[in-house]
Design a protein around this nucleic acid. Structure first.
Lengths: 116, 116
DNA sequence: TCCATATTTCAACGAATATTGAAATGAAAA
DNA sequence: TTTTCATTTCAATATTCGTTGAAATATGGA
């Protein structure tokens, strides 16, 4: 992961509503949630939500697919893992007794991947 | 960790120069680095750097201590760990075969803690 | 004490961000 | 095909953010 990608991902998460959306999606897992369901849960205007989805998607943190009239958003765990790896890269100069960098969250190997 | 703390930490990291500073400090480990050393490495104006340090410190991501004329900044690993935990909380609804949330980076148990 | 070094404070400016309201699009139901 | 539902697009606005320059503060050395 490049620095600019990391900044993009962090900026995408650094906002109350987007962080709320993302955590909801992380908890929902690979099945994701519809835009409407998220709007209801977080009590956000649909157009505001679209703006935030765009940011999350541009940062590679979520994917979208259409299901009838609904848009289903889901978290992309790879990006979160790459971000954490970037943040903790060469932690404490690599001294193992001081630091232990690790991956954050693994996506299911059972389900098929979706494209952005 | 509360949502507002997480947003603060993410916002603090969501900027090119601050992310550069933070990664430098993560790699430096508990000994930290002086403001001047960081200014030299990243080629930033000292006052600009102070501005960014303030953000990182307000978010609990770094600590400062004075050493002679220099100010020594060091990463606070606990905050990073708490942030990652918050982001991956109840990942995939807690289904273990789909997700495995973990801590990101452990501080050394050998050295004494510093206060902000 | 006087000077140099290291860092912070303050005010000002342009750029980016989040929210809003109104209108448009896409898909399904009547 | 007309209507309804779900979501997106667009323009406008207030707020926040990052950088700069000049000046202030704190520490250590001559």
């Amino acid at each position: 992961m490049e620095q600019s990608d990391a900044v993009a991902a962090l900026a995408a998460l650094a906002q109350d509503n987007r962080l709320g959306v993302y955590r909801l999606l992380v908890q929902a897992g690979p099945d994701g949630l519809s835009a409407g369901a998220i709007a209801d849960t977080l009590e956000l205007a649909p157009n505001t939500l679209t703006f935030h989805f765009d940011r999350l998607r541009a940062a590679g943190l979520v994917t979208v697919r259409r299901d009838g009239r609904s848009m289903i958003y889901a978290a992309r765990f790879e990006t979160m893992n790459a971000l954490v790896a970037y943040l903790t890269d060469n932690c404490c100069g690599g001294a193992p007794e001081q630091c232990a960098p690790v991956a954050a969250c693994k996506p299911s190997a059972k389900r098929s991947k979706q494209t952005v």
